[in-house]
């Protein structure tokens, strides 16, 4: 059972205090999107073995949704950060690369 530290209230909570929310950093596709774009947004998930970014809500705590960078194979947690980020921030990227030198971000930073 995982423990994650909520970046909003600083509490290290166990999984039973949290609510999972699936893959992070999805970009919403609204009514103007094509079928393909909507399918990719609604259903296509990376589900990687390894570094993954995911949504968690501190449901039995401050109620905030936060994001976690975690290895799905070893369950190593590289860090947690606030939801109001379009991409994982630099310190999270650095923490991942420290443990996984071969890993590269699949987004382009603005």
């Amino acid at each position: 059972m995982l423990t994650l530290t909520c970046p909003y209230c600083g509490i290290t909570a166990e999984e039973t205090e949290l609510h999972p929310g699936g893959e992070a950093h999805l970009t919403r596709v609204g009514p103007t999107g094509t079928d393909e774009e909507f399918e990719a947004y609604m259903f296509a998930r990376k589900n990687p073995k390894g570094v993954n970014f995911e949504r968690w809500r501190h449901a039995y705590g401050c109620g905030k949704w936060f994001l976690a960078a975690r290895c799905t194979a070893t369950l190593q947690v590289f860090g947690t950060y606030k939801s109001q980020n379009a991409h994982p921030p630099a310190d999270i990227v650095a923490a991942i690369r420290k443990s996984r030198p071969d890993w590269n971000p699949d987004w382009t930073a603005e």
Binding site: Y8, C9, G10, I11, C62, G63, K64
Partner: peptide
Amino acid sequence: TAGMTGDGTRILAWMSPDE
């Protein structure tokens, strides 16, 4: 954050970053 202040009769508690 996650703290409380009080004066003996009233307590003000931090519930969330905006609550």
